[in-house]
Design a protein around this nucleic acid. Structure first.
Length: 413
RNA sequence: CGGGGACUAGUUCAUCGGUAGAACGCUCGGUUUGGGACCGAGAAGUACAGGGUUCAAUUCCCUGGUCCCCGACCA
């Protein structure tokens, strides 16, 4: 990608009203643009990051046997009446509900339990059809009482939601643990140190469900966790103990951002929507459900909250929009321009995602400021000072050093 | 939905009862070139909307809208 062609350009000033770090940096660096409160466009750079994250999740979920699909966002009222949630006051608060010109009632999706149950009720016949794990990445609409913190809490946001269906509670819990492990791996690959935090159980279980929390000052949640082992609980269930019940070490608290959660649903939806299978004896049985979510856009915001400095974003390599930010200085000199273009093409040929600042006018300082702001992991400079070599600086390090093209390619792989 | 703040050029802000100004950005010309360079010229505004007070309102008052922050609620 040529920086001269990239839409849009970076902003020098902090947009008015943007107070949270993720909001300020993502807007200034051109990753997102606000349409209204809690509603943002993912601009080309932001979308690149989104796709990187999406692919990591897709890989990890497919690895354990989940199947990706895509469900509609516009839902007829009757399916929500079956679960009784259309008229639930708590649901009415957050669900966008409206009528079309024929007075038919619709709602915009804020979750997909009803739809998944509806699909499964059609196709699940036998115990042989289970278990099945279905997921999709899609928009969620929530009429938030208060959208806030930039991209962390929106009224329209992208979520990955996964639903698993099972022949029994035992099977459900078994898969619950498998998905939990996959989630741990996902967050690790994305670059985040997410804590697996115990949360209140559902209606039918005395056990705990789990939230994935990332420590961050800007987080809305507070969690209590052990300094030594991986014990952690959310505010809802923490009972005030000073010592860890598992290892006896100190418990400490911190604010955090919930980036994902997993919880068993039991048979509530299968009963409401008639999702049943025949067991080995030909007897009809309810299907057991569990659901698992990851807030995709929130995850992007969380990454910025965690990985930034006073100059800009510092993307983990696994999710960065580009791997190398190639900066050409002194480009009005034909020989340097030619060399920079050559390196740009060679890096591309090596399969390296590179953003090439090919602008001739701007000063070195302006270009460097842009690299820091955008936060690509490797900055590579070519100028009359570099004399045929490549000057490399990692975004999260201070020192620069000179390398050959071969060495650089090896480094970024 | 309660409490607070804001709304003026593309952006960030200043002005202040007498019909608007800077910086940045943008365009053109020139000088620069390793941390958001400099000089000159230029384009750019229904001051959120409606109502009221006034000789006169961007400015004061009221109503509404929008955005941000705190709270209740939540991926």
């Amino acid at each position: 990608m040529l920086y001269s062609k990239l839409f849009p350009k970076t902003l020098k000033q902090v947009p008015s009203g943007a107070e949270s770090v993720n909001h300020q940096l993502l807007v200034r660096s051109g990753f997102i643009d606000q349409l209204m409160a809690g509603s943002y466009t993912l601009l080309p750079l932001g979308w690149k990051v989104y796709l990187k994250i999406e692919n990591i999740i897709r890989e990890e979920l497919d690895k354990i046997g989940c199947q990706e699909m895509l469900m509609p966002l516009l839902h007829p009222r009757d399916i929500w009446d079956k679960s009784g949630r259309w008229s639930d006051p708590n649901v009415k608060e957050i669900m966008y509900q409206f009528k079309d010109i024929h007075e038919r009632e619709f709602g915009l999706s804020f979750t997909h339990e009803e739809i998944v149950a509806y699909i499964l009720s059609k196709f699940i016949k036998s115990y042989k059809d289970l278990p099945v794990l279905l997921y999709h990445f899609s928009t969620k609409f929530r009429n938030e009482l208060r959208a806030k913190s930039g991209i962390l809490r929106g009224r329209e946001f992208i979520m990955k939601d996964l639903y698993s269906a099972h022949i029994s509670e035992e099977d459900m819990w078994q898969w619950y643990e498998i998905v939990k492990k996959a989630y741990v791996e996902i967050f690790k690959r994305v670059g985040l140190d997410a804590k697996v935090v115990e949360a209140a159980g559902g209606v039918f279980t005395k056990g705990h469900t789990h939230e994935f929390q990332v420590l961050a000052e800007s987080g809305e949640d507070v969690i209590y966790y052990c300094q030594k082992c991986d014990f952690a609980q959310n505010q809802e269930i923490y009972d005030g103990e000073k010592k860890c019940p598992r290892c006896g070490s100190e418990i400490q608290s911190a604010s955090s951002i919930e980036v994902g959660n997993i919880f068993p649903l039991g048979t509530k939806y299968s009963q409401a929507l008639g999702v049943a299978y025949q067991d080995e004896n030909g007897k009809s049985q309810d299907v057991w459900f569990a659901s698992y979510g990851i807030g995709m856009t929130r995850l992007i915001g969380t990454l910025v909250e965690v990985f930034h400095d006073e100059k800009g974003i510092i993307w983990p390599e696994s999710v960065a929009p580009f791997t190398v930010h190639l900066v050409g200085l002194d480009l009005e000199e034909e020989s340097i321009k030619t060399e920079a273009e050559k390196i740009y093409k060679l890096l591309q040929a090596e399969g390296v995602a590179v953003l090439f600042d090919d602008r001739v006018g701007p000063s070195a300082g302006e270009k460097f400021s842009d690299t820091d702001l955008i936060g690509v992991p490797y900055r590579v400079v070519i100028s009359k000072k570099t004399q045929g070599k490549l000057e490399v600086k990692k975004r999260n390090e201070k020192n620069t050093h000179f390398v050959t093209l071969e060495a650089l390619v090896k480094m970024v792989r």
